[in-house]
Design a binder for these strands. Structure first.
Lengths: 207, 207
DNA sequence: AAGTTTATTGACTAGTCAGTCAATCGTGCA
DNA sequence: TGCACGATTGACTGACTAGTCAATAAACTT
């Protein structure tokens, strides 16, 4: 409908657009050093509206981070519910971590920035620790159903670190198809962590 | 010597102080969003002097990053020359990565920031790729002297990712003694990557 | 239709910051 | 001693930005 420049939308829609624009901006700049004006322009609104909805720049950023976290969590939950064994549930977590949506360059950049920021800012830190704890809890829970060789907590930490490390390194290489490779490497790590790991681990990457 | 407020120093000294102050500032803020004035204040000089020596903010940041990279490289080279076998040289790389100086919170934060920035800025990217390539090359070279189970390049990538991942996650946990744990986890990964890995892998962490 | 609420913006402010420049001050050299 | 060069700075500016506010206009209520 040719409504022209002035369209009014529901509050939630505007919020979503602003958060999307925020993640885009942060992702492209690979830094939190982006202006509210730039974000608003991307969302097609005035900067005053961004302040109206989110209060301040920091609140907007935190909302964007929260959106990343919940998107990931929802994906994990959905995939977990579809898997039947502990081993395949581990694979589900891996798959979720490297899902195309999560693995997009801008998303990776945003995660990295938030990871860094979380180390100095309490507000960001609290948010990120929720994610870290939940992922650790999930990993440990599934590992408990498997014959882990060695310390279980270390195994969970190893998997989490491998995921984060591969995630972080994504974007530095030029080659595509890094996604499949990241999954393969992580799966191999998991198999290595399991005692008497059979060659066939039962995982299968999804296109 | 009570020289008072006005002391003149050699150019190189001032540069070092400014770079140190830059890394401190970036590390504390966990972001590149620090002012030249703040950095200069930390170094005990005027902001004009920082511009005098480095030209601009970006050049100062790049110099700081370069300093991180060469410090790490020097440490790796030193440790590599002391190790005798491929396996112990791998451990040397691990030890260097988690050396207390490299593992300090501020240093970790600075690395993380640079990692993120490297994905969008060509200048930062070039710099970081040098480090990534060299580390990869080192890892692959040592792995060639060992019975690797599976793809050698994937094994090198796995080790590198594990190091980066543990590195990134450092600072999120509250517990100390993460250093030893990070080393242990990485060593275990390496052993897992080697065919018929013996229980005693020959590495020994250094206090 | 009148009134209320809510979305939306342009214009403004107060503050910040990177980078410049001319002037000052040591230090070593002829 | 005098000179020249590098170190160092205070003061300044031009540009930019977060956040405010009052005004407008669409949508919703009754």
């Amino acid at each position: 409908m040719a409504n022209g420049a002035r369209t009014r939308k529901k509050s939630a829609d505007r919020r979503d657009e602003l958060i999307r624009a925020t993640l885009e901006s942060i992702g492209e700049a690979c830094s939190l050093d982006v202006t509210v004006g730039e974000i608003a322009r991307r969302a097609g609104v005035s900067s005053a509206l961004a302040h109206h909805y989110f209060g301040g720049k920091d609140d907007l950023f935190l909302a964007a981070m929260r959106s990343l976290l919940t998107a990931f969590r929802n994906d994990v939950v959905a995939r977990l519910s579809e898997a039947e064994t502990s081993r395949t549930r581990l694979s589900a977590i891996v798959c979720a971590s490297f899902a195309p949506a999560q693995f997009a360059p801008n998303t990776v950049a945003a995660w990295t920035i938030f990871y860094a920021k979380a180390q100095s800012s309490p507000r960001y830190g609290r948010l990120l620790r929720v994610y870290v704890r939940r992922l650790r809890s999930n990993l440990q829970h599934e590992l408990r159903g498997l014959p882990v060789a060695g310390d279980l907590e270390d195994a969970a930490e190893a998997i989490a670190a491998m995921i984060d490390g591969l995630y972080l390194r994504q974007g530095l290489q030029r080659a595509p198809a890094e996604r499949e490779r990241a999954i393969a490497i992580t799966e191999k790590l998991i198999d290595g962590l399991l005692a008497h790991s059979p060659l066939d681990s039962g995982w299968r990457s999804r296109a």
